[in-house]
């Protein structure tokens, strides 16, 4: 393959932008899974964020307000999943799939009047000094604010999980809810908070699609991005730092194969598009073969205090 014709500066710059929606959704989902809950409804929450963010940004003229509304709307939607799975003890897999159905349907109904309109978008920042550095500047420091917000969010999640008491409790709840309960932690409340946070992040990811990446509202515009976010969490083996690697790898492979095509190389598209998933499986096998169970031990298991 001919890599020579591809400008690495532009490639990196482009993949940072195209990976941002899945990065946002994945970091949120990781927190949810760390607390022991598997929410398969990421796609539904993302697209709800996409439509609400678009509508609010269009009506208010402020993309930032759009992002805030998107986060809130998707988080509120995710609470329906939380109430069902945490209080009414429904199965998480089935409820997550239901959430996807609800999100796709609801977003299409909300978005009908807004099809074909143009919303205010975010301006690219040109970070002083850093942005002026040759090569590095255009690669990393000339993007819109949400690219940095997503990275800051990852850093914050990493630090919270690793260094704070709350992070410790969250992880304890995900590893063994019975033990955490015995220690007096409010398992359900903590999981609800994690679910709420996961919903908000998915909403931001969706809004990034409808306000920056595409920027327009069309029905079904997430086109499977939520499912990719789920895969990234697994790929990252539930570690915040690796979420960035995973998101940039998944996003990067699409960008790379399109760039290779644009540079005139013959590309085995089907193999390349399957490759991130194959790599994810290999990663999963490697970590489990090493005896480390990457997944939080209580992942997907219902919790009821009176066992």
């Amino acid at each position: 393959m001919d890599f020579g014709a591809i400008n690495p500066i532009l490639l990196v710059a482009s993949l940072m932008v195209s990976a941002t929606p899945i990065l946002l959704a994945a970091i949120g989902e990781m927190v949810v899974e760390k607390s022991g809950v598997l929410n398969l409804g990421v796609e539904g929450m993302m697209i709800t964020g996409a439509v609400v963010g678009f509508v609010v940004a269009l009506n208010s003229g402020s993309p930032m307000l759009g992002f805030a509304a998107a986060a809130l709307a998707a988080a509120v939607l995710s609470l329906s999943f939380g109430i069902l799975t945490q209080y009414l003890l429904s199965n998480q897999v089935a409820t997550g799939l239901g959430l996807t159905l609800v999100g796709l349907g609801l977003s299409a109904l909300i978005g009908k009047p807004y099809e074909g309109m143009k919303a205010p978008s975010l301006q690219d920042l040109h970070i002083p000094l850093l942005g002026d550095i040759p090569v590095i500047g255009p690669m990393f420091f000339q993007h819109d604010i949400m690219v940095y917000v997503s990275l800051a969010l990852v850093a914050a999640v990493w630090a919270t999980l690793k260094y704070t008491r709350f992070g410790l409790i969250l992880r304890a709840v995900g590893e063994s809810h019975d033990a955490a309960h015995a220690l007096g932690y409010k398992v359900v409340r903590i999981r609800m908070m994690a679910i709420f946070f996961g919903g908000a992040c998915s909403g931001l990811g969706g809004a990034y699609l409808s306000l920056v990446r595409v920027p327009q509202w069309t029905e079904g515009m997430t086109a499977g991005a939520g499912w990719i976010a789920l895969a990234i969490v697994v790929f990252a083996s539930w570690r915040a730092g690796r979420i960035v690697v995973g998101a940039y790898l998944f996003g990067g492979i699409t960008v790379l194969q399109l760039n290779l095509q644009a540079a005139g190389a013959q590309v085995p598209v089907a193999l390349l598009s399957a490759s991130p998933y194959l790599i994810t499986i290999i990663v999963l096998v490697t970590i489990s073969a090493r005896g480390m169970h990457g997944a939080p031990a209580s992942l997907g298991r219902p919790f009821h205090a009176s066992h």
Binding site: S80, L84, A94, T95, L97, G98, L99, T100, L101, V102, G103, L104, G105, L106, S107, A108, L109, E219
Partner: peptide, 13 residues
């Protein structure tokens, strides 16, 4: 079509 999707989601919920 979307309303039917939402309807099915509600039924499931």
């Amino acid at each position: 079509g979307a309303s039917i999707q939402l309807f099915q989601g509600m039924l499931l919920f």
